Simulated assay, not measured.
Amino acid sequence: MTSTQAIQKICILRLSAIGDVCNALAVVQQLQQALPEADITWVCGKAEAHLLALFTNINVVIYDKRDGLRGLLCLKRQLKAQQFDVLWHMQAALRASLVSYCINAKRRIGFDRSRAKDGQWLFTNEKISPANSPHVLDGFLQFLNQLNIAPQPVKWHVPLSEQDRDYAKTLLNTDTKQLLICPAASKAYKNWTIEGYVGIALYALNQGYQVSLIGSPANNEMALSEQINQACKGRLSNLCGKTSLPQLWALIDQADILISPDTGPAHMAVAVNTPVLGLYAHHNPQRTGPYQYRHYVVSVWQQEIEKEQGKPASQLSWRSRVKNPDAMQLITLDAVIDMFETIKQEQQL
């Protein structure tokens, strides 16, 4: 392998999604610590660029998938003059691999064959070693090993602006414990039930928490949050759609607990050390769960995947997905309340 001293320009290719970009960010920050003089460019999606804009030591280049071939040609022109020493191709998807053709790099590092789905291995000339853990972030850490950089314990540095922190404070009562609920994932089948969200919200209110709903301005997220708040007779603070991504990150930073299904804000919370009570049914939380808070996940994935496949989970692929569209309804309110109490008690120690 080439000495790290010869590495001056590095391109990161991870287009989406918010949660995966947060996981990759922890690894990129370790890369920056090991190679402080290296110039880092990150090719990402439009929404993810708003998140990465906080990090002024990363050159952000946007590829909007809605632009299709025209966007690819534009990206190729934009990067034509740049020659990178290393490309980290961190997304095993055909669209991302097509984007990789726009990036000139001597070393094109991608996933090992077990993770290089959609033929990603055809677009790289080096493969990382398989990870010992199924988690997405542990897979990302192998990119460091490929550059002879020893991975360190995972942590993030998120440079939230004072302006965003101040805005978050105007939305929250800082004298009260704060529970944030992010009810909607990008895919509706990952959402818990309205009755469940209402039940845990009312329980937390009775425990003295201010309870706020968060999410993007997407119509489905706004509608779900409004339904939950109406069912709680307007006792919640409905902040859904009222924050930019950096403002949302500042809001999560000031919360005591976040309750969320498998979606981006859960991973944003991990990055600022806010405990996450994750709700999982379709995907293995040991693979996609909130990295530092997987022990707080309430999951029915194992029981459901074993029921569908007729085998122990240990004998199945870590990618195995529960197909039952109603699987999230199997998460009980009692289980969520019990985990909420566990988090509370551990915070008091």
Rank of each mutant, 00 (worst) to 15 (best):
M222Q: 15
E341S: 11
N191G: 05
C74W: 06
W42I: 05
A6L: 15
T332W: 07
M339N: 03
R70M: 12
G264H: 03
L333D: 09
E126D: 12
R287V: 07
A34I: 12
K344R: 14
K155D: 13
P134E: 09
D334A: 13
V27K: 08
T263W: 00
L69T: 14
G264L: 01
R14H: 11
Y63L: 05
S133Q: 14
S186W: 06
S114T: 15
R235K: 15
V21D: 04
K65S: 12
T4G: 11
N145W: 02
A184F: 02
L122N: 08
P151C: 04
K80P: 04
L13K: 11
R108F: 08
T288S: 13
A255L: 06
V336C: 06
K169Y: 04
L179D: 01
Q5P: 03
A335W: 02
Y280S: 04
Q30I: 10
V297Y: 02
D138E: 15
Q142C: 14
A218S: 15
P325V: 11
P290Y: 00
A188S: 15
Q210P: 09
D334L: 04
S114H: 12
C11G: 06
Q227L: 13
F340N: 00
R321I: 13
P275T: 08
N220W: 11
L160Y: 05
R70F: 07
A313G: 10
Y189S: 08
L333T: 12
G208R: 11
N23G: 07
W318Y: 14
H89R: 09
W301R: 03
W301T: 00
A38K: 08
D253C: 10
T170P: 02
S3A: 14
A204S: 12
D166H: 12
M268G: 02
L224K: 04
D67C: 13
L251K: 01
K117N: 14
Y203T: 09
A255M: 07
S317A: 12
S133G: 05
A184W: 00
L349S: 14
G71I: 06
L224H: 06
R95I: 13
